[in-house]
Each structure stands twice: as structure tokens, then as C-alpha cells.
Deep mutational scan, measured.
Amino acid sequence: QGEKVEGLQAQALYPWRAKKDNHLNFNKNDVITVLEQQDMWWFGEVQGQKGWFPKSYVKLISG
């Protein structure tokens, strides 16, 4: 089970394309609201879409 977080935002360092239905698509420089953190994967929201993404593709910009 991941840790729920509030008020964290991350900026995409690279584009990410979903490999599964529960993954989040985003483009480089998109700002993602992080909702949950697990070891290597984070759950977040961007442009009304929610899903999992690899944390190595983003950098935290707040929180």
C-alpha cells in the first residue's frame, strides 16, 4: 500500500506513455499533482486524468 500525500506537485522530465490502462500519460514539463507514492511508482493527476507513472520521470517542485 502506498503513502497518500497532499499538496505535492512534480514536473515531468520526460514524456511518458501509458503501458497499461491504469497508467498516466504526460508530456515533458507537464505539472502533475502527486496523490500517492510507492517505491518506484507514483499515482497522480494531470489534465483531469489519473494514473500511475514511474517516479524517475519527474522531479518534485513543491511539498
Results as ranks from 00 to 15, higher is better:
31 V>M: 14
23 H>V: 08
28 K>V: 06
14 Y>Q: 09
15 P>G: 15
43 F>G: 02
9 Q>K: 13
30 D>H: 03
52 W>N: 02
14 Y>S: 07
51 G>F: 03
54 P>K: 04
57 Y>M: 14
54 P>V: 03
11 Q>L: 06
9 Q>A: 11
48 G>M: 07
62 S>L: 11
12 A>T: 01
13 L>D: 09
35 L>F: 05
23 H>Y: 08
18 A>D: 10
5 V>Q: 13
56 S>P: 05
14 Y>M: 14
39 D>H: 03
61 I>D: 08
40 M>E: 14
47 Q>F: 15
2 G>T: 12
10 A>T: 01
47 Q>R: 09
31 V>I: 14
9 Q>F: 08
50 K>N: 14
20 K>P: 04
39 D>P: 05
22 N>Y: 09
62 S>F: 02
13 L>M: 07
22 N>V: 05
25 N>S: 11
19 K>S: 14
59 K>D: 02
7 G>R: 07
26 F>W: 00
53 F>S: 00
1 Q>Y: 03
52 W>Q: 01
55 K>N: 12
29 N>L: 06
1 Q>I: 02
41 W>F: 06
9 Q>I: 08
16 W>S: 12
16 W>V: 04
48 G>H: 04
33 T>N: 07
18 A>S: 12
13 L>F: 15
19 K>P: 09
27 N>M: 13
60 L>Y: 05
34 V>P: 02
6 E>N: 11
4 K>F: 07
26 F>Y: 01
54 P>A: 02
46 V>F: 10
3 E>S: 05
4 K>C: 15
49 Q>L: 09
19 K>W: 10
12 A>C: 03
21 D>M: 03
6 E>C: 08
61 I>H: 03
10 A>S: 03
61 I>L: 13
51 G>I: 04
39 D>K: 06
49 Q>V: 12
38 Q>V: 05
21 D>Y: 10
28 K>W: 09
56 S>L: 10
42 W>Y: 14
57 Y>S: 05
1 Q>T: 10
17 R>Y: 06
49 Q>K: 03
18 A>R: 06
11 Q>R: 12
44 G>A: 00
62 S>Q: 15
31 V>E: 08
5 V>D: 15
21 D>P: 13
59 K>H: 07
61 I>M: 04
2 G>E: 13
2 G>A: 13
43 F>M: 10
20 K>Q: 08
47 Q>E: 14
22 N>P: 14
9 Q>V: 11
52 W>R: 00
46 V>S: 13
31 V>H: 10
27 N>L: 04
37 Q>V: 02
13 L>Q: 07
22 N>S: 14
52 W>L: 01
31 V>N: 07
58 V>P: 04
18 A>H: 12
37 Q>H: 06
3 E>K: 11
